[in-house]
Protein backbone atom coordinates (compact mmCIF):
# COMPACT_ATOMS: atom_id res chain seq x y z
CA UNK A 1 0.00 0.00 0.00
CA UNK A 2 2.67 2.50 1.02
CA UNK A 3 4.78 1.76 -2.05
CA UNK A 4 1.87 2.63 -4.29
CA UNK A 5 1.97 6.27 -3.26
CA UNK A 6 5.29 8.00 -3.63
CA UNK A 7 6.56 10.85 -1.50
CA UNK A 8 5.72 9.19 1.79
CA UNK A 9 2.32 10.85 1.97
CA UNK A 10 0.33 7.67 2.31
CA UNK A 11 -1.84 8.43 5.30
CA UNK A 12 -4.61 5.94 4.64
CA UNK A 13 -3.27 2.66 5.98
CA UNK A 14 -6.28 0.42 6.11
CA UNK A 15 -5.05 -1.67 9.02
CA UNK A 16 -5.24 -5.41 9.41
CA UNK A 17 -8.32 -7.51 8.96
CA UNK A 18 -8.54 -8.44 12.65
CA UNK A 19 -8.87 -4.76 13.48
CA UNK A 20 -12.24 -4.85 11.71
CA UNK A 21 -13.46 -7.91 13.61
CA UNK A 22 -14.98 -5.87 16.48
CA UNK A 23 -17.03 -4.02 13.87
CA UNK A 24 -18.55 -7.35 12.84
CA UNK A 25 -19.28 -8.12 16.50
CA UNK A 26 -20.89 -4.71 16.91
CA UNK A 27 -23.05 -5.27 13.82
CA UNK A 28 -24.07 -8.70 15.14
CA UNK A 29 -25.02 -7.21 18.51
CA UNK A 30 -27.06 -4.55 16.71
CA UNK A 31 -28.80 -7.15 14.54
CA UNK A 32 -29.52 -9.30 17.62
CA UNK A 33 -31.08 -6.45 19.60
CA UNK A 34 -33.05 -5.09 16.64
CA UNK A 35 -34.21 -8.56 15.65
CA UNK A 36 -35.13 -9.45 19.23
CA UNK A 37 -37.30 -6.35 19.58
CA UNK A 38 -39.01 -7.09 16.24
CA UNK A 39 -39.58 -10.70 17.27
CA UNK A 40 -40.96 -9.67 20.67
CA UNK A 41 -43.34 -7.26 19.00
CA UNK A 42 -44.82 -10.25 17.20
CA UNK A 43 -45.49 -12.26 20.36
CA UNK A 44 -46.27 -9.68 23.02
CA UNK A 45 -49.45 -7.69 23.07
CA UNK A 46 -52.96 -8.54 21.95
CA UNK A 47 -53.86 -8.90 18.27
CA UNK A 48 -57.45 -8.03 17.43
CA UNK A 49 -57.43 -6.56 13.93
CA UNK A 50 -60.60 -5.23 12.38
CA UNK A 51 -61.52 -3.34 9.25
CA UNK A 52 -61.56 0.15 10.74
CA UNK A 53 -58.35 -0.24 12.71
CA UNK A 54 -56.30 -1.22 9.72
CA UNK A 55 -57.28 1.82 7.66
CA UNK A 56 -54.46 4.32 7.15
CA UNK A 57 -54.59 7.10 9.73
CA UNK A 58 -56.11 10.31 8.45
CA UNK A 59 -57.15 12.11 11.61
CA UNK A 60 -60.28 10.05 12.02
CA UNK A 61 -61.74 10.67 8.56
CA UNK A 62 -62.27 7.94 5.99
CA UNK A 63 -59.20 7.90 3.70
CA UNK A 64 -60.05 10.13 0.78
CA UNK A 65 -58.52 8.03 -1.95
CA UNK A 66 -57.26 4.52 -2.39
CA UNK A 67 -53.53 3.96 -2.27
CA UNK A 68 -51.42 6.30 -0.24
CA UNK A 69 -48.28 6.35 -2.34
CA UNK A 70 -49.05 9.42 -4.36
CA UNK A 71 -46.72 11.58 -6.39
CA UNK A 72 -44.51 14.07 -4.67
CA UNK A 73 -42.53 17.11 -5.75
CA UNK A 74 -39.73 16.75 -8.29
CA UNK A 75 -37.57 18.88 -5.96
CA UNK A 76 -36.87 15.90 -3.75
CA UNK A 77 -35.27 14.02 -6.66
CA UNK A 78 -33.19 17.08 -7.44
CA UNK A 79 -31.96 17.23 -3.85
CA UNK A 80 -31.05 13.56 -4.01
CA UNK A 81 -29.00 14.09 -7.17
CA UNK A 82 -27.27 17.15 -5.71
CA UNK A 83 -26.49 15.18 -2.59
CA UNK A 84 -24.83 12.41 -4.58
CA UNK A 85 -22.72 14.96 -6.46
CA UNK A 86 -21.59 16.91 -3.43
CA UNK A 87 -21.14 13.99 -1.08
CA UNK A 88 -19.08 12.06 -3.62
CA UNK A 89 -16.81 15.05 -4.04
CA UNK A 90 -16.44 15.24 -0.27
CA UNK A 91 -15.29 11.64 -0.25
CA UNK A 92 -12.73 12.45 -2.95
CA UNK A 93 -11.26 15.07 -0.62
CA UNK A 94 -10.74 12.66 2.30
CA UNK A 95 -7.30 11.42 1.13
CA UNK A 96 -6.31 15.03 0.54
CA UNK A 97 -7.26 16.03 4.08
CA UNK A 98 -5.36 13.09 5.52
CA UNK A 99 -2.13 13.77 3.64
CA UNK A 100 -2.09 17.57 3.46
CA UNK A 101 -0.49 18.29 6.82
CA UNK A 102 1.79 15.34 7.30
CA UNK A 103 5.06 16.36 8.95
CA UNK A 104 8.07 16.17 6.63
CA UNK A 105 6.01 16.57 3.48
CA UNK A 106 7.86 17.91 0.45
CA UNK A 107 7.30 21.64 -0.22
CA UNK A 108 6.50 21.12 -3.92
CA UNK A 109 4.07 18.32 -3.13
CA UNK A 110 2.41 20.59 -0.60
CA UNK A 111 2.02 23.38 -3.14
CA UNK A 112 0.55 20.92 -5.64
CA UNK A 113 -1.87 19.71 -2.95
CA UNK A 114 -2.92 23.29 -2.20
CA UNK A 115 -3.50 24.17 -5.87
CA UNK A 116 -5.31 20.88 -6.36
CA UNK A 117 -7.78 21.47 -3.56
CA UNK A 118 -8.38 25.07 -4.61
CA UNK A 119 -9.19 23.89 -8.14
CA UNK A 120 -11.39 21.11 -6.84
CA UNK A 121 -13.35 23.32 -4.46
CA UNK A 122 -13.50 25.98 -7.19
CA UNK A 123 -15.21 23.57 -9.57
CA UNK A 124 -17.53 22.52 -6.76
CA UNK A 125 -18.32 26.17 -6.04
CA UNK A 126 -19.07 26.91 -9.69
CA UNK A 127 -21.40 23.91 -9.71
CA UNK A 128 -23.20 25.20 -6.64
CA UNK A 129 -23.44 28.69 -8.17
CA UNK A 130 -24.93 27.20 -11.36
CA UNK A 131 -27.55 25.21 -9.48
CA UNK A 132 -28.36 28.28 -7.42
CA UNK A 133 -28.80 30.54 -10.48
CA UNK A 134 -30.90 27.92 -12.27
CA UNK A 135 -33.22 28.04 -9.22
CA UNK A 136 -32.44 24.45 -8.39
CA UNK A 137 -32.36 25.29 -4.70
CA UNK A 138 -35.68 27.15 -4.58
CA UNK A 139 -38.66 25.78 -2.66
CA UNK A 140 -42.14 27.00 -3.22
Amino acid sequence: MSTALSGGICALHLGTFTAYLPLVFMALIGITIGGAVLALSKFLGPRRPDETKSLPYECGMEPIQQGARERYSIHFYLVAILFILFDLETVFLFPWAASFRQPGIDATVKLVLLVEVLLFVGVLGVGLYYVWKRKGLEWD
Binding site: A11, F83, T90, F94, A97
Partner: peptide, 26 residues
Amino acid sequence: ASAQMISYEVSMGIAVLAAMATVGSV
Protein backbone atom coordinates in the same frame (compact mmCIF):
# COMPACT_ATOMS: atom_id res chain seq x y z
CA ALA B 1 -36.80 13.59 6.32
CA SER B 2 -34.64 11.91 3.70
CA ALA B 3 -34.17 15.17 1.78
CA GLN B 4 -33.31 17.02 4.97
CA MET B 5 -30.87 14.45 6.29
CA ILE B 6 -28.94 14.08 3.06
CA SER B 7 -28.85 17.86 2.57
CA TYR B 8 -27.26 18.51 5.92
CA GLU B 9 -24.90 15.59 5.53
CA VAL B 10 -23.15 17.50 2.74
CA SER B 11 -22.27 20.51 4.89
CA MET B 12 -21.45 18.25 7.83
CA GLY B 13 -19.03 16.24 5.70
CA ILE B 14 -17.29 19.34 4.37
CA ALA B 15 -17.00 20.81 7.89
CA VAL B 16 -15.40 17.60 9.13
CA LEU B 17 -13.10 17.70 6.12
CA ALA B 18 -11.68 21.04 7.30
CA ALA B 19 -11.17 19.57 10.77
CA MET B 20 -9.42 16.56 9.23
CA ALA B 21 -7.11 18.80 7.25
CA THR B 22 -6.17 20.54 10.51
CA VAL B 23 -5.40 17.30 12.30
CA GLY B 24 -3.97 15.53 9.25
CA SER B 25 -5.71 12.24 9.95
CA VAL B 26 -8.89 10.28 9.23
